[in-house]
């Protein structure tokens, strides 16, 4: 941190990079003042414990997270979202070590719901996963820098991503709660619509699903099911979690159909499957193919809530997205209410 004699910002940026405290992009050198403002933005004490990562012998203290939020370029008013996301990261259900360290190289996907998303100007519309919106770019970045600098999750050491993915820089967006076919995600997960919340979800890939001809839910959802049942799916043992981001014209098809969230989830459970014979031929299951395997199906999801349905993206266009999860036997998405500052 800079002292009374402020060093040149450009040399500080280089110094932070050389010490391995960045994600490779230039950071905003924090100051005593900016860190204090970040803490005040979330009403946090410096020494307040946001959580711990038992598998890493690490206690996560608010000041360290605030420093990383400043490094990431967050504004102080973003800090409540960052703090809630870090609390989610530390939740036992998220089982941090797996998605953070696995060769699969998961992005920590942050889905923001409720009034705070609009207040901060988080993008939920066109290019929701892309560039151009400061809260989207910096909130997720603050979480990743916290993982690197506080939880020591550095590439090649305790982050063993084989390829990683670009979402590891930042992957944060708001749900589009207008014209929604169903209740928003945080409400489906037990919070009141008036609350704000952030859901953290680990995914190692993003696959965009295209369908311009579908006018009813069934053909559209068959495409989702197909995308979620490819032979290279990490987990073919049936304890998956998946995030489906329904966008544009697809949202409208589902809204007009009147299908409930539960109906969509049930349809997807029923149709996301492969024949055991296919899985064995592809060496995704061990053993010789038997005649019975040709007609035996393996289903990839167990429970409706294992399929997280979210709406985001621009209104025009026939694209949605599937984001396979890290596997809910070990890691589950966690939704954390965002503390509002009085």
């Amino acid at each position: 941190m800079s002292s009374a004699a402020e060093p040149d910002p450009a040399s500080l940026i280089e110094a932070y990079f050389e010490r391995g405290w960045t994600d490779g992009l230039p950071v905003v050198p924090p100051t005593e003042k900016s860190v204090a403002e970040m803490l005040a933005g979330a009403g946090l004490r410096r020494d307040e414990i946001l959580g711990e990562i038992p598998g890493r012998n690490t206690v996560v203290v608010a000041e360290k997270v605030a420093i990383n939020a400043a490094l990431a370029g967050c504004r102080p008013e973003y800090m409540p979202v960052v703090a809630a996301a870090v609390r989610g990261l530390c939740h036992p259900d998220f089982a941090y070590h797996g998605p953070a360290s696995s060769t699969g190289g998961s992005a920590m996907v942050l889905i923001v719901n409720g009034p705070i998303a609009r207040r901060l100007g988080l993008n939920s519309g066109n290019n929701a996963f892309g560039q151009g919106w400061r809260p989207n770019a910096t909130i997720g970045r603050a979480v990743r820098l916290t993982m690197m600098n506080v939880m020591q999750t550095r590439p090649g050491l305790l982050d063993r991503a084989v390829l990683g993915n670009p979402g590891k820089y930042s992957f944060c967006f708001a749900e589009n709660e207008d014209d929604h076919p169903w209740e928003p995600l945080h409400v489906a997960r037990g919070l009141s619509p008036a609350r704000s919340a952030v859901t953290i979800y680990a995914s190692n890939s993003l696959y965009q699903v295209y369908n311009q001809l579908a006018a009813e839910p069934e053909p559209l959802l068959v495409c989702f099911a197909d995308a979620l049942s490819n032979l290279g799916l990490p987990n073919v043992k049936g304890f998956n979690q998946a995030l489906l981001v329904v966008a544009g014209e697809h949202t409208e098809i589902l809204r007009q159909s009147g299908w409930s969230r539960g109906q969509v989830q049930s349809f997807l459970i029923e149709h996301t499957r492969r024949r055991v014979a296919d899985l064995k031929r592809a060496a995704r299951l061990p053993g010789e193919v038997t005649p019975a395997d040709e007609t035996a199906w393996r289903y990839f999801f167990e429970k409706p809530d294992d399929i997280l349905l979210v709406c985001a993206g621009g209104r025009a266009g026939s694209w949605s997205a599937c984001l396979p999860g890290w596997g809910n036997k070990w890691t589950k998405a966690v939704t954390t209410a965002i503390g509002e500052i009085p």
């Binding site: 890493r56 012998n57 360290s101 020591q152 050491l157 305790l158």
Partner: peptide, 14 residues
């Protein structure tokens, strides 16, 4: 290939 990861884990546990 996980030697460095093992060393990092041991270090993080003191």
């Amino acid at each position: 290939p996980f030697r460095a990861t093992g060393e990092a884990m041991a270090t993080s546990w003191g």
